[in-house]
């Protein structure tokens, strides 16, 4: 079965990420447990799951930062294990945890990124200005990043990730800790990139309504396994749920953590009763 996923992935010319039977353990913890999926070119793909589900670990393996124990990855046709440099040409990433140089100013962080990603000077300057204005850091561009609030650092981080226009953009909980206004602005920009430049977006989040709003397809991952994959509408239909949140609970509950979830379900019912 796994071989066929890879086969389909390779034959399916529109797949830009193909993952087959991926496994990664840290000592006795199975962080990623035999997952397979593929992401199409130009798609906005959401990766949804509770804390510790294995989302970031998967992204690290896709982005050449971590070597899998088992399994096969193709990114734009290249294997991160054997051709990491080719793979790094094809993606950009906003990490879950901080990755800016706090001693450098906002501008310098952007500039350094632009140089690392070979963006010609003129384009670089223009985009830096545009992006810093979107995230409202233009006036603070010459301040060292260490003087920013955590939300401002996050905004800098995201705008830096959007500076070059890669074939695949990874966003690991991009909007965590941001105010709703900024969140909307940023998603607006990402969607625009997706439409005008056909950038494939692979993101993770805990915000169900966000996932439902922006993702074309969603994979639900729990305990290192993918337990559902499809368009938000399909996931809801498959579980007779009215919202993605309910679908999520139905999926995770039925398959893996029945006990925990039924407790949660009870709680939710109680909350609903209480509201009445």
């Amino acid at each position: 079965m796994t071989a066929s996923v890879l086969y389909i992935g390779i034959c399916n010319m529109s797949a830009i990420i193909v993952v087959d039977d991926l496994v990664k353990s840290f000592k006795e913890i199975k962080a990623v447990d035999h997952i397979s999926f593929s992401v199409n070119k130009g798609e906005i793909f959401g990766f949804l799951g509770p804390n510790g589900a294995g989302k970031s670990t998967t992204i690290k393996m896709l982005t050449t930062l971590l070597v899998p124990d088992r399994g096969k990855i193709l990114m734009n046709g290249f294997d991160p294990l054997t051709e990491p440099d080719k793979v790094r040409q094809t993606f950009g990433i906003v990490f879950q945890d901080p990755s800016i140089d706090e001693e450098l100013t906002a501008w310098e962080n952007m500039e350094l990124h632009g140089v690392l990603y070979h963006i010609p000077k003129k384009v670089r300057r223009r985009r830096i200005e545009q992006l810093l204005k979107i995230v409202e850091l233009w006036d603070r561009r010459n301040d060292p990043a260490k003087r920013f609030s955590s939300g401002m650092k996050r905004r800098l981080e995201i705008s830096r990730g959007l500076l070059h226009h890669p074939a695949i953009l990874f966003l690991d909980e991009p909007t965590l800790g941001l105010d709703p206004q900024t969140r909307n602005l940023i998603w607006g920009h990402i969607k625009q990139l997706n439409q005008t430049e056909r950038v494939t977006v692979f993101f993770t989040t805990h915000y169900m309504e966000e996932a439902e709003r922006v993702a074309g397809r969603i994979a639900i991952i729990d305990h290192g396994r993918i337990i559902a994959l499809g368009a938000p509408g399909e996931l809801k239909a498959a579980t007779n749920a009215s919202s993605l949140e309910d679908a999520f609970i139905n999926f995770t509950g039925r398959n893996i953590r029945a006990e925990e979830v039924s407790n949660l379900d009870q709680l939710r019912r109680r909350v609903r009763l209480f509201r009445r």
Partner: peptide
């Protein structure tokens, strides 16, 4: 501080 990641995934 995380900055290392930024350079490690860059296409250089």
């Amino acid at each position: 501080f995380g900055f290392l990641k930024e350079t490690l995934v860059a296409p250089v």
